[in-house]
Design a protein around this nucleic acid. Structure first.
Lengths: 235, 235
DNA sequence: GAACTCTTGTAAACACCGTTCACTGAAACC
DNA sequence: GGTTTCAGTGAACGGTGTTTACAAGAGTTC
């Protein structure tokens, strides 16, 4: 089984430690604290040694982004699995709550991954949980049917592209969707929901509500209720 | 009129140049390029001289945030003034469009001001345009009346606080509101609108929509239409 | 005008940063 | 056993924020 040579094992272990150290620095002291020298110091090696593993400081940060995405996805899946109701509405609610909880517990990671003007985000696993769930959500006929004519024609092209993304995401988890189920109206509503979910969470994490919020959780719940109602779920 | 001494004038001028240089660096090369030494280089002085004007690099960044907020407010007011329809609905639309346009044209500034896990934002002028307009919007009876009972009771305390913020913001511009006009239901809808506006703009600026958007503008228009409809305006 | 203070800038230094390069020593391979 | 591969080192370069001691001019006081 373990075809890895001794050298390969050691290398993999060191790489794991590098990621772990980088992550710890980000959490403890923010983005600017994730320096090559600080990471090396944590491992008891020197900074240039890190260049045996990453081409540059920037490449290491990108890897960090990917790790964060993977961890977030795992957290969201865990909360999704904890929901045993079997109802899609409850599952959506669980994942949205999990997203908010994760963002509030990991503000630095959230800022790095979701609110940086970076070009190449790890789009592969980014939000795969959302996509999968969104696909299932649309597939379930609980969502009110919206005619394709409701959405402006200029958006059709983009939404068709998103349609394909959703089909791919869901089929990766072994579920195939009928063509007719995924109409553009429904897809449009999912995008609108993402806007509201992301908007609320980001505003909360960055403290950019126009007034001091003392009870953020019920406000989130309230937004979620409205969002689900608008999609076609009853609260 | 000019009671400022010669020394004071020189100092003010230098301070102006510092802000200007810092701003240029942010726009041209991003947050990490706003360096004390780079600023000093632009002014033809040395870095320690900047400590005669700011306590630290961080203090300078905070000042930069305030400047950005002020400039954005000016841009939004300009676009608001350009709207001569006299209808609040059109004014809201104009300001929302102006916000999106500003954010897309100034991604670095937007990221720094609206998406940084910083504690002390220049909340004074932050979004004063929004607040003023929101107050007027609520005051106009075009907005459908929503009962206070619609919003969960846990939110009342926070919304009352926001109510006061709105009243103050509007009264600063010489308009006084009747008590009854500003009910909690309406205020709640304004908060929800801010969530959607901010969410959409941030997602667009940071490129975090779950698919490549080729026509972002009509998608924004569509969101705006829905938002205004939900508030109580007709499209 | 001379003496004084206050202000604005400089130069040098410190510790830190990303990155490059020549190098060592040990593991892996033939 | 000899050779190659490779993780890691140490020194160096130019960059950063920040502190300190010091110079020189502007403003003030006598």
């Amino acid at each position: 089984m373990t075809e890895a040579t001794r050298r390969e094992r050691l290398r993999a272990e060191t790489e794991r430690e590098i990621r772990q150290a980088a992550r710890a620095l980000l959490v403890e002291s923010g983005r600017d604290a994730v320096t090559l020298r600080a990471i090396a110091r944590k491992l008891g090696i020197t900074a240039p040694a890190l260049y045996r593993y990453y081409d540059s400081h920037d490449a290491l940060l990108r890897q960090l982004c990917d790790d964060i995405c993977a961890d977030m996805a795992a957290a969201l899946y865990a909360d999704l699995a904890a929901d045993t109701s079997g109802e899609v509405g409850c599952q959506v609610r669980a994942v949205c709550h999990a997203f908010r909880r994760w963002a509030l517990a990991h503000p630095q990671e959230f800022a790095l991954v979701f609110a940086s003007p970076r070009d190449p985000i790890g789009a592969d696993q980014f939000g795969s949980v959302f996509l999968q769930l969104a696909g299932q959500l649309i597939a379930s006929n609980l969502v009110a049917t919206h005619s394709d004519d409701e959405v402006p024609e200029v958006l059709h092209e983009d939404l068709v592209a998103f349609q394909q993304v959703l089909v791919d995401a869901v089929s990766e988890h072994g579920v195939t969707l009928d063509d007719g189920v995924l109409n553009l109206g429904k897809i449009y509503h999912v995008v609108q929901s993402w806007v509201r979910l992301y908007g609320h969470v980001a505003l909360e994490v960055f403290g950019r509500f126009p007034f001091a919020v003392s009870n953020p959780e019920p406000m989130f719940d309230s937004m979620l209720d409205q969002m689900l109602t608008d999609i076609g779920f009853s609260a």
